[in-house]
Amino acid sequence: VAAKTDAAHRGLAALFAAHDIERSYIALVRGAPRPPAGEIRTRIGRSTHDRMKMAVLKTGGREAVTHYRTERTFGPPGAPLAARLVCRLETGRTHQIRVHMASLGSPCLGDPVYGSGAPAAAVREALRESGLARQALHAAVLGFVHPVTGERLRFESTPPPDMAALEARLSDL
């Protein structure tokens, strides 16, 4: 979001601070989180082991809240190899979704920083074939009330071609 005026900038900053922005993301993850839907409420800050990464912390950091829902799983029933999630943010911490999904044991596919462990061979092949060269995370919805006009705005975006191609290939598992 970019503001054209100081008034709009101040208003948008206030909306973000009050968590009055609708943000929804699509994530393709390794395996599937358990439970399939829920709320992750942790503290996120710099990792004490690797200062280049963020991490879930027991003390310190800042509160981070992500609501997630599994929309679809890929692979054998009962033992999914991957899943499509919708993640809705209450807060907006650096790498929040990536850190939270990894903390559940279902990191975003293609994530070189938080995606510890390799996905199943069939998922690796789907990643190669799709050409996805980044984490499988897409900002799908942004909604807010315009701080100057009061108009309710909502923007939706479909996943880009590389992520859509990955999902299509995962559908064949």
Score class of each variant (00 low, 15 high):
A79R: 15
A79W: 00
P80C: 09
L81C: 08
L81R: 15
A82T: 10
A82L: 10
A83D: 02
A83F: 05
R84N: 03
R84S: 13
R84E: 15
L85P: 10
L85K: 07
L85H: 08
L85Y: 05
V86F: 01
V86I: 14
C87I: 12
C87H: 11
C87L: 14
C87Q: 12
R88W: 00
R88C: 10
R88T: 14
L89C: 10
L89Q: 11
L89Y: 07
E90C: 00
E90S: 07
E90R: 14
T91K: 08
R93T: 12
R93L: 10
R93P: 09
T94W: 01
T94S: 13
H95G: 08
H95M: 06
Q96L: 12
R98K: 13
R98Y: 11
R98D: 12
V99Y: 07
V99S: 11
H100C: 13
H100V: 07
H100S: 09
H100R: 05
M101H: 05
M101K: 05
M101R: 04
M101D: 03
A102C: 11
S103M: 05
S103G: 05
S103Q: 04
S103A: 15
S103Y: 02
S103E: 04
L104K: 04
L104W: 02
G105R: 06
G105W: 01
G105K: 03
G105C: 06
G105H: 02
S106Q: 01
S106G: 03
P107F: 04
P107N: 06
C108Q: 01
C108K: 00
C108M: 13
L109I: 08
L109H: 02
L109C: 07
G110F: 02
D111K: 02
D111N: 03
P112A: 13
V113I: 15
V113T: 15
V113N: 01
Y114M: 07
Y114S: 11
G115C: 12
G115D: 07
G115T: 11
G115F: 10
G115W: 06
S116V: 12
S116T: 14
A118R: 15
A118V: 06
A120E: 15
A120C: 06
A120Y: 03
A121Y: 00
A121L: 14
A121N: 01
V123Y: 06
V123D: 04
E125G: 00
E125C: 00
A126T: 12
A126H: 08
A126G: 07
L127S: 01
L127Y: 01
L127F: 02
L127P: 00
R128S: 13
R128E: 14
E129I: 00
E129S: 09
E129A: 15
E129G: 07
L132D: 01
L132C: 03
L132V: 08
A133M: 04
R134G: 05
R134E: 06
R134T: 04
Q135Y: 13
Q135C: 09
Q135A: 09
A136H: 07
L137Y: 06
L137G: 12
H138V: 11
H138M: 12
H138T: 12
A139H: 13
A139N: 06
A139E: 05
